[in-house]
Amino acid sequence: MTDVANDVIAIIAKKVRVDHPKIEMSDRLQDLGLESLDAVEMIFDLEEKFDIQIPYNANNPRTEFDTVGDVVSAIEKLVASRPS
């Protein structure tokens, strides 16, 4: 697991109050109990942690953020394209 993945899962774990080691890449955020306000806070934490901008509108939930793995790969892409 990459450092980015590890950090992303830690942030998700904090929001859903599930222990970090128990979270799998295939877990669906909804099934982990992530509610809409948690999602907005998770996005904020991810942006702050990695200094990135994530386009996200709570009215139009991004289906590509269905699972933990989806979030990890989206953040890895945004981090890779971050201006250095």
């Binding site: 907005v40 996005i43 996200y56 509108n57 709570a58 009215n59 139009n60």
Partner: peptide, 18 residues
């Protein structure tokens, strides 16, 4: 809050964005 529409308000409409 991530609840604002980028373009305009479309209450009750399909494709409303906030």
């Amino acid at each position: 809050m991530r609840v604002m529409a980028p373009d305009t308000a479309r209450p009750f409409s399909k494709d409303r964005k906030g």
